[in-house]
Design a protein around this nucleic acid. Structure first.
Ligand code: MN
Ligand code: MN
Ligand code: MN
Ligand code: MN
Lengths: 224, 224
DNA sequence: TCCTAAATTTAGATGAATCTAAAAATAGTT
DNA sequence: AACTATTTTTAGATTCATCTAAATTTAGGA
């Protein structure tokens, strides 16, 4: 019998990063891009790429980059699932604000207990999205990106419901809080300023003027 | 300004073990006893003892052993607090049985977020004891052992309420479940067999015969 | 095709956490 | 006081995860 399969915390973090960079597709993810994303050095990434390849989690082509294997994808989805479920737990059950959950979820996602995460899922009534609007993979690994677009790309007078954020930094989320913009709110674009692409929107019966930088970090789903 | 104080998982586990072995008292705890408790080698303990001493968490006397410093005690209490609160959480909120919480709590106790554990405490309504009857230190570090004694040491005909377990192994806890013995139940000793120190008890209106091995792993608080 | 800049890997070092084997210290016993 | 068994420490090795500096490969012009 072969030794029980387990991953270190570092290995899990690499797998997750490769997944977020698109390593679940066909394209190879470069060591440099992984290093940048993880704030580490390319030489460290090379090292880890070899280790992950040896464990059968990535396909590694020297000087080219890596992609996730099927096993790697499954692993990535499981970690993403845990991360997002914990974020929901923190917000719904412990009254954390959506701008303070990420750091803690980064730790909690590495807790090894299938029963634990399934019970958390149940306690939360099997949520489909995390506090930032990102989809939560199911236990069996199904995962579907929501159909959405950036508010900045919505045509004039079109309406959409706010479904997610691209930037999840504290400062951005706090800006949204301060201006009473939250997921689920309906937004209509009233005018667009040619000079700086800032827009005037109607939200909650209020009118609000927001910069392009804000609008290009808010996801909406268009409706009529 | 000095570098932010943080402990690795291994360091936290050593501190906790030294605490459980009585290192909060005056007596020195030997490297051997720590190694045995942690299922590691004495030479590894020596190494760690030096590191912990350098960080000001233990007093280390070569060839003699270690005790916890004030800082070490505070750290130990904080870890024990987290461990026991998580155990309560798993039992009360996620329907874990009391025999399956320890392993998971061993992981959860290392999550670094003061807010998280305070919110869990609040969610549980500030419990005083964990599922095995062990006291939970307060946020400020107050900690008091409950006044209790082993069932095996209770005199004949005396009554006591079951308040804790000494052995927390799955097999022991499952034995108690099977025989419907749980914390809070009242127990009276009816007779004691001289030959093997087994005892006949009354619990819940039932009569039950239990071995000395069982009786010397159950804590009761005597009452009249 | 050749050259060069950028990306990537290799080589060698470090610290944490562990181990084994050997040396040293301690404690109990004649 | 000397011997010996036990405990403890030291020395040296290993694995993981990281780094820096140097070497190598790739890719995009000229
Ligand atoms: Mn997050
Ligand atoms: Mn999120
Ligand atoms: Mn426990
Ligand atoms: Mn316990």
């Amino acid at each position: 019998m072969r030794k029980a399969f387990f991953l270190t915390r570092a290995e899990e973090n690499y797998i997750k990063t490769i997944f977020h960079l698109g390593g679940n597709e066909t394209q190879l993810i470069s060591t440099n891009s992984i290093a940048e994303e993880m704030e580490t050095k390319p030489s460290s990434v090379t090292d880890m790429a070899k280790r992950l390849a040896r464990k059968g989690l990535v396909n590694y082509v020297r000087y080219q980059g890596v992609t996730l294997t099927e096993k790697g994808k499954k692993t990535a989805l499981s970690i993403v699932r845990k991360h997002r479920l914990w974020e929901v737990f923190l917000v719904k059950k412990l009254d954390f604000n959506w701008d303070e959950v990420h750091e803690v979820a980064e730790q909690l996602e590495h807790i090894k207990s299938e029963k634990l995460i399934d019970k958390i899922d149940e306690l939360l009534d099997f949520p489909k999205y995390d506090p930032h609007g990102d989809p939560i993979p199911t236990k069996s690994g199904e995962f579907q990106e929501r159909d959405k677009q950036l508010l900045s790309e919505l045509p004039i007078m079109a309406k959409g419901v706010c479904v997610g954020v691209k930037d999840t930094s504290s400062s951005f989320l706090q800006y949204l809080d301060k201006n009473n913009i939250a997921l689920g709110h309906s937004i209509q674009i009233l005018e667009r300023e040619d000079f700086d692409d800032s827009i005037e929107i109607a939200i909650d019966g209020r009118r609000l003027h927001i910069s392009n930088q804000i609008a290009s970090n808010l996801y909406v789903k268009q409706h009529d």
